[in-house]
Amino acid sequence: MNRIKSLFERKHSNILNVYFTAGYPNLEDTFEIALGLEGCGVDIIELGMPYSDPLADGPTIQESGSRALKNGMTLDILFTQIEKLREQSELPLILMGYFNQVMQYGDKKFFERCKAVGVDGLILPDLPLHVFERDYHQLFKELELTISFLITPQTPDSRIRKIDSLTTGFIYVVSSYAITGAKKGIQPYQIDYFKRINAMELSNPKLIGFGISDHKTFTIACEYAEGAIIGSAFIKALGGLGSLPERINAFISNIKMKEEINS
């Protein structure tokens, strides 16, 4: 069974999804970071495929992507790294990137390769809903890959319903009007929006992302959804001091508050 689906069957709250850019800070760090996160009890790993022009991302993720590309990261290297990771880890794993990367690799070939190396799901923010429905919906079913679409405070209810009907895995609830990396805290209008989404009783679980950066914001997000996604804040932490495992451990302990880690 798809690892993301089985996770959501087992666990319904406080799900922590951590994003990091593959190949950052160093080309071969992907493996160690993923295992480090798993060791800290992270539930889902979202691996960013570094891209030259990441429209939905802020400076932190963008810079980590440029660095990863300078380090020589390519999709083939990334797939090989994931294959190796799968020898040791059964953690649910999502690839996040931009549709141009998929198209240039060859769309069918890309998704089949995802399946073959053990990727569970995809997030492609600039893949239009109708293109997915027309060209890939069936293929994703056959390959048992999940797809998570984004919703924002401006997404109308009718479109949220449509997104819910095409999404598998979880819905990515973008917390505010923002690119990634914004850190304004959580405002009252966002809470209203989270409540509005909850009241819709969607068929998919929800993870809240964008602007989730610390214990406080993670906790609030978990009140209104099955869990949350942390990206830029973790990437900043990866650039900090200490060994990689120390940096990862310190960051995740802080998010979860230490006592939770080995429970």
């Binding site: 939905a56 549709f99 923010p125 600039d126 239009p128 109708h130 924002t152 401006q154 109308p156 009007y177």
Partner: peptide, 19 residues
């Protein structure tokens, strides 16, 4: 109607711009 000139064009944008 979908914004294409032959096979080119369209609207490949993140949800945040959709509205």
């Amino acid at each position: 109607d979908l914004g294409f000139y032959g096979e080119f064009g369209g609207s490949y944008i993140p949800e945040m711009l959709y509205h």
